[in-house]
């Protein structure tokens, strides 16, 4: 059920400002692909173009192709709502719905899409919470508000919410940047388990994290201040961190950047 993503010639704008330019790459199914690069180089923007969340930002528009197993997400008759059910997303800051309980948060995707059988709901919630390694911590308080959990638990709740709708691809935008090392470890272990079932793309500022969790790593950079971000190179994570083919990648990874 995991799908391959082929991106070709992708350019994204905020109004008249070009944020990323001419990006082409392939994201392999059942693997973790990490995006690294300095702040403002368009990693998050690029990630958001992969499930059509970029156009939610006022003025956001995209040129180019994103093929999800040969289907172009930006074809004219594609409904962005369906795309987002196929390509899930976890955000930088944990954002559980404050009016809903833990159970309702996980069930939100199914309930609000209206496509579920009542008998299934309990099973789906349990399976998703187990999948997010959160079940044992919350099974006795499923009807308590989700905002009462700790930051790391909230983030795992958001992951459970995202995988409850059974997406093909999971996009993670710096999912650990607001968390402590222990919670980060829990999430990283989880990513390792989830890649058996999903295609995972993760944006991170933490290069050790990219080295730990990912199979392939893509390095993004700005040509100059004010210029759009570009993909510098993408390769096996081991190669990127040991013997990258572009000097700029090596400079960034070894901290000699700029």
């Amino acid at each position: 059920m995991a799908k391959r993503i082929d991106i070709s010639g992708l350019t994204a704008y905020y109004g008249s400002h070009k944020a990323i330019e001419d990006i082409s790459m392939t994201v392999e199914p059942r693997s973790v692909t990490a995006f690294i690069g300095p702040s403002g180089c368009g990693k998050s923007t690029f990630l958001r173009t992969l499930n059509r969340m970029h156009e939610v930002t006022p003025g956001g528009r995209v040129e180019g192709k994103v093929l999800l197993d040969d289907e172009n997400l930006y074809a004219s008759n594609v409904d962005p709502v369906t795309v987002r059910r196929t390509v899930g997303m976890v955000f930088q800051r944990p954002n559980p719905f404050p009016t809903m309980s833990i159970f309702d948060n996980v069930a939100a995707g199914l309930r609000l899409n209206g496509s579920y059988r009542k008998s299934e709901l309990n099973d789906v919630v349990e399976k998703s919470l187990r999948g997010a390694n959160l079940w044992n911590e919350v099974k006795d308080r499923l009807n308590k508000p989700g905002s009462g959990l700790s930051g790391g638990q909230q983030q795992r709740l958001c992951i459970a919410r995202a995988i409850a709708v059974e997406p093909q691809v999971l996009l993670m935008d710096e999912p650990c940047s607001a968390l402590d090392p222990i919670s980060t470890l829990a999430i990283e272990d989880l990513i390792g388990e989830l890649k058996e079932r999903f295609t995972i793309v993760i944006v991170t500022h933490n290069m050790q994290q990219a080295a730990r969790v990912s199979d392939r790593t893509a390095f993004f950079n700005l040509a100059a201040v004010g210029k759009p971000g570009r993909l510098i190179e993408i390769d096996e994570t081991e190669r990127i961190f040991s013997n990258p083919s572009v000097q700029a990648t090596e400079d960034y990874i070894s901290g000699r950047f700029g």
Binding site: N51, M53, V56, V81, T82, V83, R84, R85, T86, G88, M89, F91, R93, N95, F97, P98, T99, A108, G109, L112, N113, C158, R161, A162, V165
Partner: peptide, 27 residues
């Protein structure tokens, strides 16, 4: 209402009108 909640809901594949009805207004 934080924009993050709208984005979280949209990213789950929930249509905009249901997002407003079930997430934004209750909050």
């Amino acid at each position: 209402v934080p924009n993050e909640l709208r984005e979280a809901s949209l990213a789950l594949g929930i249509p905009k009108w249901r997002t407003i009805l079930k997430v934004v207004l209750p909050t």
